Amino acid sequence: MADCDIRDGSPGIQPERAAAAVARLIEAMILEGSLRPGDALLAERELAARLNVSRPTLRDGLKLLEEKGLLTPAGRGLQIAPLGMQAIGDPLLALLADHGELADDCLEFRDIVESEAAALAARRASDTDLAHIRACLSRIDAAHDAGDPALEAEVDAALHLAIYEASHNLVLLHIMRALSVSLRNDVVQNRNRLFTRPDTREAMRAQHHRIGAAILARDPAAAQAAAHDHLDWLRHTTREIRDAEARRQVAERRRQGPDLTNGKGGAT
């Protein structure tokens, strides 16, 4: 957290006003995504020094945030509450996630959202956002070269979240952050399925680089097209693999069928 100057001891600044200013600052940082669910705040003495307020004023400001449910206790300190997670963790969503046949719907949803997010990122990304996207692409290359599927899945999901951040649409960012666990699981499942085919790892790396390059070039149309092509490829390829697996299972059941009968013909 960068040093901030609220100065509750300045002439004319009442402690309760300074406490409210502390609360507003942290609220703003939560809203813009600078502070994320689960982030632990600094120890009281250090946080008060960073904000240039007294420790009693800091406590009052943090108490306001606890009362709003934005902060929760964590050990001997406080952390950002798991905002949005409870709603996104609705049992219906868990039910949807448990049904593999809905994977196509999930990818269709991601296509709609991520294509537009990529276009927004190309228009709105700050230099810091672009540096983060470059770093994600470098991590994707490193994980690919290391042949580490788990790390590849992790950095894949990290790139998509970096694009949401760079879109600077706060509603979109917080919804997709709340869905980040589902997104990560979706990425892992898709990769496990896709890696049964040769050359898919290289294809996915190339697709991610195409999305990133378009955003770095600040080309919204190219970024939107690249994101759409990536998700459309995922949908069609996973559907083909799923259909092939279903046909294999049918053939296997037909082969096993005679072993489950007494050898006598059915009624005529």
Rank of each mutant, 00 (worst) to 15 (best):
A2F: 07
D3W: 04
D8T: 07
G9A: 12
S10Y: 13
P11E: 09
G12W: 02
A18H: 00
A18S: 08
A20K: 14
A21F: 04
A23W: 01
R24M: 12
I26D: 01
G33C: 11
S34P: 01
S34Q: 15
L35N: 08
L35G: 09
L35A: 11
P37F: 14
G38M: 04
L42P: 00
A43E: 10
E44T: 15
E44M: 15
A48I: 03
L51I: 07
S54L: 02
R55Y: 00
P56N: 06
R59G: 07
R59T: 05
G61T: 02
G61K: 03
K63H: 12
L64G: 11
L65F: 05
K68W: 03
K68R: 13
G69P: 09
L70M: 10
T72K: 12
P73W: 06
G75P: 05
G77D: 01
L78Y: 01
Q79P: 06
I80C: 09
A81T: 15
L83K: 13
G84K: 10
Q86P: 03
Q86V: 03
A87H: 09
G89V: 04
G89C: 00
P91C: 11
L92V: 02
D98P: 07
H99I: 08
H99W: 01
H99Y: 03
G100W: 05
G100C: 03
L102T: 13
L102V: 08
L102P: 06
D105N: 08
L107I: 14
D111K: 14
V113P: 06
A117F: 02
A118V: 05
A121M: 04
R123P: 02
R124G: 06
S126P: 00
D129I: 00
A131W: 04
H132D: 14
C136H: 03
C136N: 04
R139W: 06
R139E: 14
A142H: 05
A143S: 07
A143R: 02
A146G: 07
G147K: 06
G147Y: 06
A157V: 13
A158H: 05
H160F: 10
E165Q: 15
A166M: 00
S167M: 08
N169L: 01
L170F: 08
L170M: 04
V171L: 10
V171S: 13
L172C: 11
M176K: 13
R177W: 11
L179P: 00
S180R: 05
V181R: 15
L183M: 03
V187D: 11
Q189G: 13
N190H: 13
R193A: 12
T196A: 12
A203G: 11
M204E: 09
R205H: 05
Q207E: 03
H208Y: 08
H209K: 15
I211V: 15
G212N: 09
A214H: 00
A217W: 03
R218E: 08
R218H: 11
P220V: 02
A221D: 14
A222H: 00
Q224I: 08
Q224T: 13
A225W: 04
A226G: 02
A227T: 13
L231S: 14
D232L: 04
R235N: 10
H236G: 15
T238C: 09
E240T: 15
R242F: 05
R242H: 12
R242W: 10
A244Y: 06
A246V: 09
A246W: 05
R248G: 09
A251L: 12
R253K: 02
R254D: 11
R255V: 13
R255N: 12
Q256I: 01
P258K: 02
P258M: 04
N262G: 12
K264F: 09
G265I: 12
G266Y: 12
